[in-house]
Design a protein around this nucleic acid. Structure first.
Lengths: 220, 220
DNA sequence: CGTAATGTTGAGCGCATTCAAGCCGGGTGG
DNA sequence: CCACCCGGCTTGAATGCGCTCAACATTACG
């Protein structure tokens, strides 16, 4: 993934991957409390990560797709602090963190890359905090859709059509809303002609309208 | 900060600090858009970090005190993506990130330490997401107070008394509430005999009650 | 084909917000 | 030293957004 490497360096980085692992839909890649050993690069499939409070409430902290890395939460305490659950059959590269640390001492570009991945996650979460702390339901869902479709587009999928891999409840958990509110908001967007929604198939008819909901240009 | 180092290694780590910098209350250590060069270790004082959406809303993403590190958000894009503002006169150690990367290639314990700091921040933000996504006002404020007093206690301050360095508005922004709601909730806690509040002076009378608000033990 | 899981929609409610008025405390200048 | 001012804080009343509870529709799946 990092660029600007010699072929020799690239070969060495390939050696980080200890194994590949297939994860069936609905099963966990790792779960809260488990020993942390490796980071995982998603090759195919779709994951959610969620944390739980002692009294059973849980919160989806993110949705991850091909090319993204999960498991960073485990580094601090040598134990994972959240669950990673496959939302569809998936395959990951298992990258023992020991090896990553070892090799990133020698390959500067890898070291830099690891740091960026972690920093990127921190910045992403800042964005989620902004969303959860100050946006209303419509803004949250619009923001969510735009983010999802943008990431999918970067992977070669459509700019305007997507299939949700998660339930309304999972979307709601991520956005700090109840599933009914998510459903209602989808219906509202559909009524406004902004999207077509048929269960998990979403067709975005008016991207600008979504952007305008997230970031109203009332100043004009 | 890291332990288990030879004195020689410790000396080298000291060399990371390029300078110390004093920050007056109300001024910024860095702000959104600025070039990223260094991480900052807080020696004394108290900071808030906040992100802003294009339309002016902003969200406090954290409060940082002595011993904590800020600036991690800048690593991904070589530019900071949030503002760091001193809530009281402060002093920080400026640690050029280049040097950190350099030295952490040679000193394993430092490398490990850097990774843990970043991972810790990710886990902390997971907790905030849980708070913002699923807690009610009283739970949020109770959780906030407990977290604050626990961190202060770890630095040798009282377990039950603290002085808030931030306004009600800043607390509200962090907790996803309006300042009036923060104020009302403080009043409610006071009426229930859980805390005494006089402006920014807070005296926690019943820690268990606060814990119980965060994590109700209705099962008993 | 039948059952369970998921999604939609409606009605009523409650918590946090909004809007507004007043209070407190610290700093400044007459 | 006191009067004044201003930012921060508190409190009240009314509103509204999202939640709860509930019924029903649709889809997935064994």
């Amino acid at each position: 993934m990092p660029i600007g490497l010699s072929t020799e360096e690239l070969d060495r980085i390939d050696l980080i991957v200890a194994a590949r692992r297939k994860i069936k839909r609905g099963t966990t890649l790792f779960r809260n409390g488990e020993k942390f050993n490796s980071l995982y690069a998603i090759r195919t499939g779709f994951f959610k990560t969620c944390v739980a409070s002692e009294d059973g409430r849980d919160q989806v902290t993110g949705f991850q797709m091909a090319g993204e890395v999960i498991g960073l939460d485990g580094i601090v305490n040598d134990h994972h602090t959240c669950d990673a659950i496959a939302l569809e059959d998936a395959e990951v590269c298992v990258m023992p963190f020991e090896r990553i640390e070892e090799l990133s001492r020698e390959v500067n570009a890898l070291q830099r890359h690891v740091h960026k991945i972690m920093s990127r996650e921190i910045v992403r979460e800042h964005g989620v905090m902004l969303l959860l702390g100050s946006m209303r339901a419509e803004e949250r869902l619009a923001s969510f859709l735009l983010n999802l479709v943008q990431r999918l587009h970067a992977r070669g999928f459509s700019k305007s059509e997507l299939i949700l891999r998660m339930t309304r409840e999972e979307i709601g958990s991520y956005l700090g809303l109840k599933l009914e509110t998510v459903s209602r908001t989808f219906s509202k967007f559909a009524a406004d002609g902004i999207v077509e929604v048929k269960q998990r198939h979403v067709h975005i008819l008016n991207t600008d309208a979504l952007k305008d909901i997230v970031n109203p240009k009332a100043c004009n």
